[in-house]
Write a protein that binds this DNA or RNA. Structure first.
Lengths: 193, 193
DNA sequence: TCTCACTTTACGAACGTTCGTAAGTTATGA
DNA sequence: TCATAACTTACGAACGTTCGTAAAGTGAGA
């Protein structure tokens, strides 16, 4: 399917150079065609971008939902650390997550609204699941705290900081160490002791 | 000084639209001149960008260094929380920090090397100071831990996650709550108890 | 099985626009 | 008078997009 090849190339260049920095010529050349041919598959640059965005959203969301459906939820330490590992894993082997991250935080101005809607949609879903898990753990006295919202937001913060470190990512040793540091302190911050 | 006005406008557009998305025409118009007049002050787009970058770096660095020189260092809880407040404050009233953040993580490809050098320079300095503070606090048994590196990196992670939330920033209530959540969990994670 | 109409895909050429950049000219102020 | 800074005008290159056209693929009817 040529459309998918185009989307793959577009994903790559949008991720590397941002919306404005990516050109249809580059994308077309990567696929082995002229930029005009892209218009046989997509209405234009915006249309192509939004298709890539929705694919990325689906990947991001389904990966995370799947993770939560698989865990037994009786071991918060394992479950949460596993989620961090999942995020790192996705980031490293899946260009879509990098794309998603970049566009979440620095969207092209004229598409900001459309992007925001998708971002908020995912965010709410993930946060809701996470919050219910934390509530279970609190009720089961596996972690401390009265409301589930606090550890949830703190954990999402850890996820963000790890993602940022991965984006920045020139020192792999530092990445590992920073992940461990953030995780250790976070876990001590919510664990019973 | 017209050069400064140009840099101010450039800062604004580089921050909003990124390097590729910002145009010299827009910048010139903001200042009230033609884009060709910019060349009376700067060699070109790259030159203007690098000037803005260096100004931003200086602001970022001097603000943080000044903070550390002012604190008494005997109260880690107050000192660290104060640093978070400083970062938020800087971010909200100073466009340069937003610019700095965007360019740190998503630099224009052909200037990535130059930008990286500056970013690493600041990062190392801030980390070094922070690490020595943490070491003092550990020695004084004000916080737990054997090595200072772990709480340092974890704290830098908290800073990053807060910055990201500010960049994203459509829900101010959520921002405050997330800051409190990240901070509370972090502090409990390193505090003696 | 062959043909005819239709759709899909690709591309050369060109559109209008904007980009960053340059040279030459005019006004301002020391 | 002599810089300096802003202006006007201009340029090649690249941008996203459109048009017309040609080739390739598809399905139906005879």
């Amino acid at each position: 399917m040529k459309s998918n090849e185009i989307k793959d190339a577009a994903l790559k260049y949008f991720t590397m150079h941002g919306y404005e920095g990516a050109t249809l010529s580059q994308i077309a050349e990567e696929v082995g065609m002229k930029k005009q041919s892209i218009y046989a598959h997509f209405k234009g640059k915006d249309d192509l971008f939004l298709h890539v965005l929705r694919d990325a959203k689906e990947t991001e969301l389904s990966s995370k939902l799947q993770y939560f459906s698989e865990i037994d939820s009786q071991n918060p330490e394992k479950d949460l650390y596993g989620f961090l590992q999942l995020v790192i894993d996705l980031f490293q082997k899946n260009e879509q997550i990098k794309f998603w991250l970049r566009m979440s935080f620095f969207p092209p101005a004229h598409l900001a609204k459309a992007i925001d809607k998708e971002v908020i949609d995912i965010e709410e879903k993930v946060q809701a699941i996470l919050e219910s898990k934390f509530q279970d753990w609190i009720d089961a006295k596996l972690i401390v705290g009265d409301t589930a919202k606090m550890p949830t937001l703190a954990f999402l913060g850890v996820v963000d900081s790890i993602l940022l470190e991965l984006v920045y990512g020139n020192d792999e040793e530092r990445q590992k160490y920073k992940l461990e540091a953030s995780w250790s302190v976070f876990w001590r911050g919510i664990a019973r002791h």
